[in-house]
Simulated assay, not measured.
Amino acid sequence: MMDIPRIGIVTISDRASRGEYEDKGGPAIRATLEAMLSVSWQAVTRIVPDEHDRIEAALIELCDREGCALVVTTGGTGPAPRDVTPEATEAVCERMMPGFGEMMRRESLKQVPTAILSRQTAGIRGRSLIVNLPGKPSSIEMTLHVIFPAIPYCLDLIGAAWLDTDPRICKSFRPEGK
């Protein structure tokens, strides 16, 4: 029997981490993944403040100790001084995957001109892929649908847990014979 893949979901928000604001980003990620994925999986959630060290610690814990194949973050990707999610992600990753951020911005620019201010990115830590999403729930759903077709094959290539999607919702791509 295969282990159930684990997916980390991290909300990065000062107010949500203090309980002053309802976390809407984390639940939006979870709902979108529940609709997309055709395999059983387990969510491992965290809410952390916009602090570089705390974000790094959460990402390391989810990748190294919790064994998450995929870690998806929301929040902290704008140009404001406390938006440090991309820097924390880069600090813990061995290799960056800039195509994910490029694709998310390209799609978001179809909706709003301020998408150019977004700094979403992705990177690999060991056998985990970390992806930084925007904070708005509608943007989370839109960007996940745009990038997710490449995620299962990326996970295959780094030796992570096997994920697949419901092709009626989101068709993942794997080369012939993979």
Rank of each mutant, 00 (worst) to 15 (best):
E56R: 15
M36I: 11
L37A: 07
D50K: 00
A16P: 14
K171H: 08
A43F: 12
G99H: 04
C170A: 11
R82M: 02
K24R: 13
A43T: 11
A91M: 09
L109M: 15
I116T: 08
C68K: 06
M96T: 03
Y153W: 15
S118I: 01
M104I: 10
F148H: 04
R46F: 05
K171M: 11
D3L: 13
K136V: 12
P137K: 05
T121H: 01
S138G: 00
L144S: 06
I29D: 09
A150S: 15
L117P: 10
S172C: 13
I9D: 05
T143L: 14
D83N: 07
F148Y: 10
E66L: 02
G19K: 07
S40V: 02
G19A: 07
R30I: 09
V44R: 13
R125C: 07
G67S: 12
G99P: 07
G67V: 04
L155R: 04
D64M: 02
M36H: 06
P5N: 03
Q120R: 01
E141C: 06
G123M: 04
S40T: 08
D64P: 03
V48F: 03
A57Y: 01
E141P: 08
F173E: 13
A57W: 00
L37F: 06
R119A: 03
T77I: 10
G26W: 04
F173M: 14
V92R: 06
H145T: 02
V44S: 12
T45M: 13
P81T: 03
D166M: 07
T121G: 08
R6W: 03
R95M: 13
L155M: 09
M36Y: 06
D83G: 04
A161N: 11
A28Y: 06
G26Y: 02
T74Q: 08
I140A: 05
H145C: 05
L129F: 10
